[in-house]
Amino acid sequence: MPEFFHRKIERTAIGFVVAIIAAASVGGIVEIAPLFTIDETVENVADMRLYTPLELAGRNVYIQEGCYACHSQMIRTLADEVDRYGPFSLAVESQYDHPMLWGSKRTGPDLARIGGKYSDVWHAAHLNNPRDVVPQSNMPAYSWLARTPLEVDNLGHHLAAQRAVGVPYTDEMIANAARDALGQATPDSDAAFSILDRYGEETQVSAFDGVATSVTQLDALIAYLQVLGQMTDAAYLDTAASELPPDAEDRDVTQAEEERN
């Protein structure tokens, strides 16, 4: 009998197309739509911060260079990964990531919690030529990043587009995007202080690549790397992972937990 039915749809091209669409749609709908309706999917945390314009630009450099081809940013729920890289990644940690950069290959180590692990100077040397600091490395040398000025003028458009896809940037952040990017890479400038007002005291202001007079793609990329894993403490709470949250000394953990509930 089923073949008899099949004999029929086999005789009409349109019918066949409709049948294909019907059969192929179910899986995607069942698996994707509920990710928006089930609240549990993304943890609700109070301290989640936004990427500053410089960090967002750095994220775009990370994308442009295809770092995700070798580095994951997703610590899985496996004991060895937690032992090596820190608490497993939570959905909320990439809540504002358009696109996500979880990666699918670890030619190099996971970078989900690389922020604060090394110094800016180390990153600058490593990106310029990894084999200068890690002779065994097969990571490419990104020597042009330090020479390529960062385009900051259109960062306002970037933030606006991010807002259009759901990241809560304010009008003020959008209006000051270029200035904030410059300020974050030039310590002691006026702009360096206003960025703390807008993005929080935790924001790292630094001459990331060691040169405070110009803002390069390398500055942006290091700013981004230094903030990975530092956007919220959520992953450190409620887990058996033995590490303390990144800013434990000035933050009361139980209080943060209360904020969360």
Partner: peptide
Amino acid sequence: HMPTWDER
């Protein structure tokens, strides 16, 4: 700059 390992 030698990082602190207090938290990590």
